[in-house]
Design a protein around this nucleic acid. Structure first.
Length: 430
RNA sequence: GGAGACGUAUCGAAGUGGUCAUAACGGGGCGCACUCGAAAUGCGUUAGCCCUAACGGGCUCGAGGGUUCGAAUCCCUCCGUCUCCGCCA
């Protein structure tokens, strides 16, 4: 949520920054300002009346106590109360309207984030090289099926398109990856959280997914109650709500959390035929990192998160690149986003395995997440998140980049202690 | 699923229709005094948000609504917490 004071005092700046995202919301910004002015005028009137009412309410018991007759004042108050009620309703309406409008504004990109859409994304660095094969390489779907790692057909049978199931060594590989990630994060001092997977509406609101993207998550409804929950689309949604409506102390910060959860996404309309296999599914596993920091320390945390995510891919020995996203490609709630994209040989494309973002105070304002600073004043915290990592793109990258001519896949060195084998071979059983 | 209790500051908790919600009382924190220092003791101090250039004003007793001139207090709805019983991985 953008600070109303900034919109009030510097609307042009807000407009310009939003334009960097290739959105023109000038009319909304103007409307917010109009509603704001009207609201403040109305508020002034109502508050003056309330002051009058409060003064009268203090008099009544005194008059009564002195044995006087307060009925005249009471009659007068009745009129005033009606006016106050009317005025309050107007203020409420205007406030509601203003809030709805402000919520439709995305976060403002940082100054150094370039304007434009996806095509303006800038690769910052590459790690490793594209593997070359002196045999005919297979894509990850073939490899995973041949090796019995993933069962796409039966996954689709039991849950529909975009669902798969891991089996045998595939499950073990998946589990090894997750364990590897989690252990690395624990070593770095992150607290390991296992959050609920079904969340209340407010969580999506604070994270910035709602109200705009309510259609993109799965909703759980029950026949016997009105209680509705949604399946978390990323653990960020849960982690960023842990300290909602709390006042943290300076010593509490930074807070460093990781969580492992499946991520549930409808991905309605986003299926593309070239995205075969497990590149895009309705459920995928991810370890997510979230930090809460003081409002002048989030740049340090951002750097840490990017480096941590990179290190994991590096240790797996995968060729990847780090890209700095242009304003238009950053998530709605984020001031800056860097993607780590791993090379998928069969697709000849880099695919995101981690997205690291700094929301600055955008989510904290929505969630009223504050801390008392050294200056004894209240500050909104900054929140950041990064995947560390999403496995659904890592496994395709591993099996493709590490494939051998005989259809086997060499296990990356760091995973061998977890798996207990060096090579996954066709026909090796479960 | 059945029955009941509760939700007030940093924590415990009082307040059951007005003139003590800048919240009694107690704990914790902080400051000062005493002390070589500490403990103990004493004194003081310990909200946030909104409007305003300022003076000042308004809001907040889990949330929302109602009754009333006036609600923490009475009524309704919802949310949450706890206890007991039942059921259960």
């Amino acid at each position: 949520m953008i600070d109303i004071k900034l919109i009030r005092e510097n609307p042009d700046l807000v407009k310009e920054k939003i334009k960097k995202r290739e959105m023109n919301l000038d009319s909304i910004v103007d409307e917010i300002r109009e509603v704001d002015a009207a609201k403040r005028e109305q508020l002034g009137k109502v508050e003056a009346m309330k002051a009058e009412q409060n003064a009268a309410s203090k008099q009544i018991p005194q008059i009564k106590k002195a044995g006087g007759d307060a009925s005249e004042i009471m009659a007068k108050m009745k009129e005033l109360v009606a006016q106050i009620k009317e005025g309050d309703a107007k203020v409420g309406e205007l406030e509601e309207k203003q809030k709805t409008l402000i919520l439709s504004l995305p976060n403002l990109p940082d100054d150094d984030v370039v304007a434009g859409g996806k095509e303006q994304n800038e690769p910052i660095r590459y790690f490793g090289e594209k593997p070359k094969f002196d045999f005919e390489m297979k894509n990850h779907v073939e490899l995973c099926e041949n090796l019995g790692l993933i069962d796409y057909e039966r996954g689709a049978k039991i849950a529909g398109a975009g669902s798969w199931l891991y089996r045998g060594w595939g499950s073990r590989l998946e589990w090894a990856l997750l364990n590897f990630f989690i252990n690395e994060h624990i070593k770095d001092g992150f607290e390991f959280i296992l959050p609920p997977h079904m969340l209340g509406y407010q969580c999506g609101y604070v994270a910035g997914q709602f109200p705009k993207f309510t259609d993109e998550v799965y909703w759980i409804k029950n026949p016997t109650s009105n209680d509705e929950k949604f399946m978390l689309p990323t653990a960020e949604t849960a982690l960023v709500n842990i300290h909602r409506d709390e006042v943290l102390t300076k010593d509490d910060l930074p807070r460093k959390y990781i969580a492992y959860t499946p991520c549930y996404r409808r991905e309605a309309g986003s299926y593309r035929s070239e995205e075969r296999g497990m590149i895009r599914g309705h459920q995928f596993n991810k370890v997510e990192m979230v930090q809460y920091t003081e409002d002048d320390k989030s740049d340090i945390a951002f750097k840490e998160l990017v480096e941590k995510a990179e290190r994991l891919v590096q240790e797996l020995g995968l060729h990847y690149r780090l890209s700095k996203l242009a304003a238009g490609d950053c998530s709605f709630s984020m001031a800056r986003t860097y993607d780590i994209e791993v090379w998928i040989p069969s697709m000849e494309i880099y695919k995101e395995v981690s997205s690291a973002s700094n929301a600055r105070d955008y989510q904290a304002r929505r969630g009223n997440i504050r801390y008392r600073g050294e200056d004894k004043k209240m500050h909104f915290a900054h929140t950041l998140n990064a995947s560390g990592l999403a496995t659904s793109r890592v496994i395709p990258a591993i099996v493709e980049q590490y494939q051998n001519e005989d259809g086997s896949v060499t296990v990356p060195e760091v995973l061998r202690p977890y798996l207990g084998i060096d090579v996954i071979k066709p026909g090796m059983g479960m």
